[in-house]
Simulated scan of single mutants.
Amino acid sequence: MKFQPAKPSLFGETLESLTERAVADGYKAFRAKQVMEWLYKKRVDDWEAMTNLPKDFRAWLADNYIIYPARPVLDKRSDDVTQKMLMELGDKSLIETVLIRAPQKGVGQEDSRKTVCVSIQVGCAYGCKFCASGLAGFRRNLMAAEVVAQLMHICRREDAHTERAREEIASFDNIVFMGMGEPLANYETLVRTIRILNADWGLNFGARRITVSTSGLAPQIEKLAEEGVAVRLAISLHGATNEVRDQIMPVNKRYPLEKLLPAVKAFQQKHGRMLTLEFILIEEVNDSLEQARELAKIARDLHAHVNCIPYNTVEGLPWKRPSIRRQDAFVDVLRKARVSVTIRREKGHDINAACGQLRLKTEEALSAEGYTTSKKS
């Protein structure tokens, strides 16, 4: 299903496309750049706040565009350092955006390093067996404006709580396409969004601080390598053999490791950056020492960092998190094989921070109260 709003959002425009449209309707080209400054540097959400624009041009903008295509409806903060925003889109669909803080010595929590996980689809069609995002099915792809708006809402929220001491426009340090949805399945939106974020008239956000996480769409990985955007790549591997991956990741039937790993290696060779292999540890599924040994082989071959993530329990799914002892034993195999590895202990469990959980619970609650959100196509 494709959602067509009554008016597009300005956050989906590039400087070039807005300039072209404004000039075609009789306005000066430089007005488009002024608009972008109001959007990205001053973060306004009201046409009347754009005070250096002529009244007739502001009226033209209001007639042809909206500013924000998404609005926060719930803002939850965990007991650790994780914050999740639930946002409602123009068709009443719900999406999630997560802000994760990494505390650093000598600075307060609000000034710590911040990573934003953004959604790029409503739901997900790829059906990873351990993930909440696909439980309600796939509804639609997001438009670039709906992705950019998530980040701008985070900027506005952080601006209100912290002093923007850095020279960068953004109020965070890293962006990860690792929220709801498969980024490479919404490829055109992904690339357009990255270009908007990277542009000096946009958020001026370095591509090397943007990570695209994929479940393994090999052809699109190869295509992304040729786009000329030097983003980081993370592979949601979660199984070091086809046998294990087939159990929990349906995408592996189409793109088994024999197809996926060469595409990943080609990306790595093109960009020369260390890759990340995401590996959610699930008890008695992929947490064996044999899986750890196979994962070590893959990581060494790809010159990849491994990010081990103990499973974040999802209500309604049968999977469990391994014990601390099993987690440590798994990681120890990787370290002894001289693989770069971190283990990310639980974050945000008390606010349902696993992808799609908060949205799913909210939709279930609304349904129980007689309210509806947009239906699955």
Rank of each mutant, 00 (worst) to 15 (best):
E182A: 11
H161D: 14
C128D: 00
P183H: 09
R113I: 11
S133I: 09
F138M: 14
N141E: 09
S112H: 06
P183I: 12
S171R: 15
R139M: 10
L184Y: 02
R140E: 03
K105F: 03
R140M: 08
L151M: 14
F138V: 07
E146M: 08
C124H: 05
V176I: 11
D111G: 11
N186D: 10
E182I: 09
L184G: 05
M143D: 11
E168R: 15
Q121K: 00
V122K: 04
A144D: 06
A185H: 12
D159Q: 15
G179Y: 03
I154V: 15
S112D: 07
V176S: 06
H153N: 13
V122N: 03
M180Y: 00
E110P: 01
G108I: 03
Y126V: 11
K129R: 15
G137F: 12
F130S: 05
T115S: 13
E146F: 06
R157K: 11
G179P: 08
R157E: 10
S119R: 04
N141Y: 00
R166T: 14
A185G: 08
M178D: 12
F130Q: 05
D159C: 01
L135H: 05
A125H: 11
R157Q: 13
R164H: 13
V116A: 10
E167V: 12
G181D: 01
S119F: 02
I169D: 01
G134E: 05
G123T: 11
K114W: 00
